[in-house]
Design a protein around this nucleic acid. Sequence first.
DNA 1: GGATAGTTTGATACTATATAACATAAAGAG
DNA 2: CTCTTTATGTTATATAGTATCAAACTATCC
Lengths: 164, 164
Amino acid sequence: MASSDQAVVTEFFAEGHDHSACREAALAAAEAICRTRGMRFTRLRRRVLELIWDRDYPVKAYELLEQLRGERSGAAPPTVYRTLDFLLREGFIHRVESLNAYIGCGDPGHAHPVQLLVCRHCYKVAELADDDVARLLQQKAYARGFAVDAAVVELEGVCPRCGG
Amino acid sequence: MASSDQAVVTEFFAEGHDHSACREAALAAAEAICRTRGMRFTRLRRRVLELIWDRDYPVKAYELLEQLRGERSGAAPPTVYRTLDFLLREGFIHRVESLNAYIGCGDPGHAHPVQLLVCRHCYKVAELADDDVARLLQQKAYARGFAVDAAVVELEGVCPRCGG
DNA sequence: GGATAGTTTGATACTATATAACATAAAGAG
DNA sequence: CTCTTTATGTTATATAGTATCAAACTATCC
Ligand SMILES: [Zn+2]
Ligand SMILES: [Zn+2]
Ligand SMILES: [Zn+2]
Ligand SMILES: [Zn+2]
């Protein structure tokens, strides 16, 4: 299980990015983490995570629903949203607020700040996961007497491949 | 027009915050800015901006719609969303992505980074508008070859009044 | 194994958020 | 007053997310 233990924060924009390798590592990691935490990595949960990783750009809830409908009889919005909630809670995926969409986390199981780089051209999303940024935000908020629990940080722009 | 020219980035969480003064200043500023830019500050646009400032917490599009319906005959979703688009474009309001809601900008007319502090208890929102944060985000993204055009930065937590 | 408590999924209905497309009206330019 | 542009009215539809209750599954204890 070495591959599921080591950080796999990948540069999604890079040329040589092997997405299917990410996919396999992420699925293996999720399974292992669930076992550790005593959570159930059910067929549905695995399948939704697979579907998210099948694509290398953010996936929308109703896209997932449509795909599930081809596989399961009674898939409905709650089927998808409940599963997404689980995957989010366990840190296996991230929600992209500015797109109402979801991406697989490249480093599940390792707590990290979530900061996303969203290319407005190809719509791919990479994780920044920078501690300096998280720290600065925390500090600046604290200086205003504000205690930060969570942060939505999404940078829109142009990725290197698209000519950033 | 001194009041509309000076920065009115107010600490919304503060005890002595005079929201109605903010409201009047923001409306006057919007009017002046529209005149300068050759944009039309129509009755509808003014009214929607007023409605947003009437409350001191983020307002949802359909709340605005409901209020407009009491005043205009044929208010419909596009009425609201088009007006919100205008107010956003001109920088008179900000959208809170994590709440699907809108707040009046405390400093319209002065370009500033938009970083929001969202209290998960009272739901009030304050602007951080910090250049250091914006610069750091830009730098970190640039180091990945990513050119930032815009940013969504929303910190959820507990404000000073609610015991942050 | 069988009772049972907790969790997950199925199923139906509904609420909330946002946009498309085309028609009418109002405002500004000449 | 025309013409052009911008703003708004109007209807319909698309997209996103939640509430509720029932059925099925899983783990645990006896
Ligand atoms: Zn991640
Ligand atoms: Zn790109
Ligand atoms: Zn502002
Ligand atoms: Zn508060």
